[in-house]
Write a protein that binds this DNA or RNA. Structure first.
Length: 299
DNA sequence: ACCTTTATGCTTCTTACCTCA
DNA sequence: GCTGAGGTAAGAAGCATAAAG
């Protein structure tokens, strides 16, 4: 449809700390266990309640509505039937073609929907479900409403349905489907982003492997090493696991290794005496995993 | 206070219909 | 006219939550 994705309240909690053009390849995936439903519902309900002062989760309001459920009452009034998916009637019914009653409800549906195409096809006697395409105006208004808020409380659903000359159930279904489409779109976007991040990491990895090979090659000519700049020291704080990088002269490195992190700042969260300096030098025999790339490296 | 039941609204998956190339 | 793909309205199942008993 080419509609702009507003990214509102998506169930998929996936945040990427990696942008394609950034040098930093850090990737933060926050895949929450069951992110969408409860959290989202509450968020939206809260905002709705704040905006419209219609706390449908408010005990008082709810108890008031218990007798007269706005939504169900309206649906009953309009459809002379039950539309809730979990209602006894709907759950008792079987396949759609068998389920849909002849007559009243379909009749009511057709007459309640004002778009011409439905009436024009002249298939009133057909038992199978007819696709009720929403008009451009209806879609536009629904879309605008969705941009403002992607869920509706019963009262708003009712009002919007009335405004659009649709049944509340239709408005509800439209919003459900719209949310699903938004989420799907966002998932696709996130997936694409992940793919790009993965490609970048692969490229980085390849580059680093190459560097390792070059450094190993230096082993063969130690005199070259003497001309190199002083070794880099990494100091890691064991509690926060931050690594500080510094290029030190041997005396400075010795000093740093016994005191604060190399960046000169004392780490507040961890014991100061247990920091481990990690020297990096071409001679260091780091346990590097043997990979096909390494295996083929010159010795 | 805790448990069970019920009602409600949501997500997700699926189906059926429509449109268009 | 036929056909397959894509879009979408709607149904169904399952889950979470809140309220009532």
């Amino acid at each position: 449809m080419g509609e702009k994705d507003d990214g509102l309240g998506l169930g998929l909690s996936l945040s990427l700390g990696c942008k394609p053009n950034e040098n930093d390849s850090s990737l933060h995936l926050n895949l929450m266990e069951k992110p969408s439903q409860s959290m989202q519902n509450h968020q939206h309900r809260t905002s709705w309640n704040e905006i419209f002062q219609f706390p449908d989760r408010n005990p008082d309001a709810r108890s008031c509505l218990r007798g007269i459920d706005v939504n169900r009452a309206a649906e009953f009034e309009e459809e002379n039937g039950v539309s809730s998916p979990n209602s006894t009637v709907s759950s008792l019914s079987g396949k759609r073609s068998e389920r849909e009653p002849i007559g009243d409800e379909n009749e009511a549906e057709r007459t309640s929907c004002s778009h011409g195409s439905d009436d024009e096809d002249g298939n009133g006697g057909d038992l199978s479900r007819k696709k009720l395409r929403l008009t451009k105006e209806q879609s536009l208004l629904l879309e605008d409403t969705f941009k403002e808020h992607n869920t509706l409380n019963p009262r708003q659903k009712q009002a919007l349905a009335k405004q659009l000359n649709l049944r509340p159930r239709q408005v509800e279904v439209w919003f459900q489907n719209r949310r699903a489409r938004t989420k799907l779109k966002q998932t696709e976007v996130d997936c694409e982003l992940l793919k790009r991040c993965c490609e970048k990491l692969t490229e980085d990895n390849r580059r680093l492997q190459k560097e390792v090979q070059e450094l190993r090659a230096l082993k063969l000519s130690p005199q070259l090493y003497m001309q190199m700049s002083p070794p880099t020291t990494l100091t890691m704080c064991p509690s926060c696991e931050r690594v500080a990088v510094s290029s030190l002269s041997s005396s400075a490195a010795a000093a740093a290794s016994s005191t604060a992190p190399a960046n000169g700042q004392t780490c507040q969260s961890g014991p100061p005496n247990v920091q481990r300096p990690i020297p990096i030098s071409p001679w260091a025999t780091l346990p590097i995993q043997r990979r096909p790339l390494d295996a083929s490296a010159p010795k």
